[in-house]
Computed example of a mutant assay.
Amino acid sequence: MIITSLRSKIRLVFSVTLLLLGALFIFSIKYDHAMIEERNIAQEQAISHYLYTYYLKYGKIDEAYLEAQNVSLITDKGMVVQIERFFKEKGELKRYAVDTFHLKRIIIINNDRFKLILENKNKPQFPIKRVLIFSTVFLLIIFLYLWIMKSLQPLSALKSQIKTFSKGNLDIECKSDKKDEIAEVANEFDHAVTMIRELLHSRQLFLRAIMHELKTPIAKGRLVSEMLEDEKNKARMHSIFERLNLLIDEFAKIEQITSKNFELTIKPYKMSDLLEASEDMLMIENPKRLITTNIEKDYSLSVDFELFTLVIKNLLDNGIKYSTDKYITVTINDNKLTIRNKGEALPEPLENYFKPFHASKKGLGLGLYIVKSILDIHQMELHYQHEDGENIFTLV
């Protein structure tokens, strides 16, 4: 398993450090025990040799020496019998043997001169200094771990703020008065958010001002068109000004979509109804002469009505505009909407046309950019293929 999280890496480092510290502590305790055992063995052998030599010289046991060595002579007959039985059962009842009996270190010396059972009272002392040192280091490592993890807490808050920002909420603040690197990143991000907020606000004011200024001449133009006596020209002028009004409304929607300054109203709609509303938005007389609709199997789709009809309208408009015969076929079937038109294949990958203001001879290059933005909001996709001289766009 690959560890990618910074917190996980820190936990791993401190866990390994604590494990190594624990292993070092156990090793040191075992090493001390081995050294004490080695020292006891050497002492006990020296005692045995001294007692034998002293007995040969004076014919008795030097009990004062044993007391000085913190070794006592066991004389209780019941205890002696138990100890001899214990050593015999273990096969250790020899001329010289050492073992632990009832938590006591017992020495048996059995030679041609005497037989002694001794208790070595020299026990290892509790390594209080070593325990204190290791405990201090352990607590220091735990303190450092908690200190570092606490220092990383602002990252979680910053991550939460970034998530909120990515969802389009610009009313966030993540300033920090600390002096570490995380605080520097948070302050720079807060500064960037402020700049973006001001830039978007300026853009919104600019676009709204332009749209407001355009509304006035359009309204005046409609009033003037009412004075025309020719009904055909009057209807044509009405259509032109209605088209301009519709374009302004679309620009307003584009501004909302790109700035994510809108609320979706998701409801289920029949695809045939969405298609019919989109055809009405084209503002063309008798759309049936330009569009053939085949409803093989209608289906419902949960979408925002205004935004999604704008998607279909732009696809229909592009299909008619860029077809060689100004004619398209729309098919509703199998949870898909397919739009076909005759023409050459797209010279570039479809993804390139999703960019705003893509080079276009017949428009601003915003149509598919709007389509892509709205489809992303609805978590849908637009597929493209070219077969038998036809361009095929499919909403999936």
Rank of each mutant, 00 (worst) to 15 (best):
F101K: 00
S166W: 02
K30A: 15
M380S: 06
A34P: 00
E351H: 13
I196K: 13
L307Q: 05
Y96W: 03
T331V: 15
S176M: 03
L246Y: 10
K326T: 06
F206H: 09
M211L: 14
D177S: 13
T265W: 01
M1F: 11
K297M: 12
I133Y: 12
I257D: 15
I36K: 01
G22E: 00
E276V: 11
L307R: 10
L66A: 08
I312D: 01
L200Y: 06
L310D: 08
K94Q: 08
P349R: 10
L301K: 06
E84K: 14
G59Q: 04
T100I: 15
V13G: 04
L21M: 14
I332G: 05
E38W: 01
K121Q: 08
A34C: 00
H238D: 11
S156G: 10
H102V: 05
D376P: 13
G221K: 08
L51A: 03
K150H: 09
I295E: 02
L282G: 05
L316Q: 02
I257N: 06
Q161K: 14
Q125R: 14
N341W: 05
K77D: 06
F189D: 01
T136V: 15
I295V: 15
N111D: 08
H191A: 14
N187Q: 06
H33A: 13
T53N: 07
G389P: 03
Q82S: 15
E285M: 10
L301E: 02
I108F: 00
A157D: 07
R289D: 05
Q45G: 01
E306P: 03
A64P: 00
D376S: 12
I339Q: 03
A277S: 10
S15R: 10
V224C: 09
D298Q: 05
G221I: 04
A64R: 04
P127R: 04
V80S: 05
H358Q: 07
M271F: 09
S272C: 07
E250F: 14
P127I: 09
V224P: 00
S176W: 00
H201V: 01
T324A: 10
V80C: 05
K326C: 12
G22T: 09
V98A: 02
M227H: 09
V193Q: 04
H238F: 13
H383K: 15
Q204L: 10
L155C: 09
I83A: 06
D325P: 03
Y96L: 04
K313L: 05
L170F: 11
P268A: 03
K30H: 05
P124E: 07
L144C: 13
K94V: 05
F134P: 01
E184A: 15
D190K: 02
L316G: 04
K326W: 00
Q69P: 01
D249M: 15
D177H: 08
N335E: 04
Q161N: 09
I254R: 12
V330I: 09
S302P: 07
K179Y: 06
Y322L: 07
D62C: 11
F25N: 06
P356L: 06
G22N: 08
Y299C: 12
V98E: 06
I320Q: 01
T194P: 00
S48D: 00
F262G: 11
A192R: 08
T309K: 13
G78W: 00
T258Q: 05
